[in-house]
């Protein structure tokens, strides 16, 4: 094994609605290397969180097919006992909302200590407390001894997120999954938390999957980026390529819909239509085609696959070769005349 830490192969995670199963993650394959940050970007309903939960085995009622290879083992559908050994020890997770992710009735120090207790059974209570205080120090909490006995509601949002991070890194996991870690935080706090995660990564030599809807966060943090739409990866590339030379219509539309640095652009790009719900996901053809109706049907593949357009740069469907923005074509004409 080289430096590959996690390999997801043809993962399909389906939820049961009434009598049928619907795939929220549909045939996703990707790899994560050690010491790498893989950003997964998508809007709500893209399946990005369902993917993270599948890796952590946190879905309670879902059908999981395909392989999740981690530490020489396929961990999709392994026994709860085996899973619990891995979780918190070899892989850990940081959550979106630091208030609800903490037990309101337990001192925060104890909540971090629990992660250690579960995996280092021979440690004494005193050692454990020392370790937690160390961790609190590491994540930048000013008075760790005092904070240990405080309850979540006594801390600010940024401090709570540091507690969550301390819990996640308590046993030096090799794989860290951060699910929208800064969405609930203020900008200045967001910057601090992102810096913290970056520093910790260098410290621990861990692989990080960063799930977010915020392209800015991805641009700041990720080494490679996967863009998800309707349960599938539509584009995957290293971060610079993705921002410099995005191919898939969805990626390009997303980037265009953000207010940009230069103020020349007056109107933001709007993606037509809405993200289809799980039950209404198109299961055939290009899933994004309905939202770019001005592109001719023949531009799409019948069964869109990921094509390697450059080394390490994969794009789903052939429609990207024919894609243009509706207003763009007019501009080009104008430019051509002048």
């Amino acid at each position: 094994m080289s430096k590959e830490l996690l390999e997801i192969k043809n993962l399909k995670t389906s939820f049961r609605i009434k009598d049928d199963y619907y795939a929220a993650v549909d045939d996703v394959s990707l790899t994560l290397n050690k010491n790498e940050v893989l950003g997964i970007v998508g809007e709500s309903g893209s399946g990005k969180s369902a993917l993270a939960f599948s890796v952590m085995g946190l879905h309670t009622r879902a059908k999981i097919e395909g392989n999740i290879n981690f530490k020489d083992e396929n961990i999709a559908n392994i026994s709860p006992a085996k899973l619990n050994k891995l979780r918190g020890e070899d892989m850990a997770m940081i959550f979106q909302d630091p208030l609800t992710a903490l037990n309101p009735l337990m001192p925060v120090g104890e909540q971090i200590a629990e992660a250690i207790l579960l995996h280092k059974k021979d440690m004494s209570a005193k050692q454990r407390r020392e370790k937690v205080v160390d961790l609190l120090n590491k994540v930048g909490i000013p008075r760790p001894e005092h904070t240990y006995d405080q309850f979540p509601h006594e801390l600010s949002g940024g401090m709570r997120q540091r507690i969550i991070i301390a819990t996640a890194i308590a046993n030096q996991p090799e794989l860290l999954i951060a699910d929208e870690p800064t969405t609930a935080l203020d900008v200045t706090i967001q910057a601090q938390i992102l810096d913290l995660i970056r520093d910790l990564k260098e410290d621990m030599n861990a692989g990080i999957i960063l799930i977010t809807h915020d392209l800015g966060v991805v641009a700041e943090m990720a080494d490679r980026v996967a863009v998800m739409y309707a349960g599938q990866i539509v584009e995957i590339a290293d971060v610079e390529t993705l921002f410099d030379n995005p191919k898939h219509p969805y990626t390009r539309s997303l980037l265009n819909s953000m207010p940009s640095e230069d103020e020349s652009q007056d109107k933001l790009h709007v993606i037509q239509g809405i993200v289809p719900s799980l039950q209404n996901l198109p299961r055939k053809g290009c899933r994004f085609s309905a939202r770019i109706p001005w592109i001719d049907e023949s531009a799409h593949e019948e069964n869109p696959e990921l094509h390697e357009v450059a080394p390490g740069h994969f794009v789903r469907c052939t429609c990207h070769n024919h894609f243009y923005f509706p207003d763009e074509s007019k501009e080009e004409q104008v430019n051509g005349v002048s």
């Binding site: 952590m56 946190l58 709860p80 006992a81 619990n84 050994k85 891995l86 979780r87 918190g88 020890e89 850990a92 997770m93 959550f95 909302d97 609800t100 992710a101 903490l102 037990n103 309101p104 909540q111 629990e114 992660a115 579960l118 995996h119 969550i164 819990t167 996640a168």
Partner: peptide
């Protein structure tokens, strides 16, 4: 959510 956190820590 904190129940998910507990599971993610490896609690049985």
């Amino acid at each position: 959510d904190f129940i998910i956190t507990a599971r993610a820590k490896g609690a049985s």
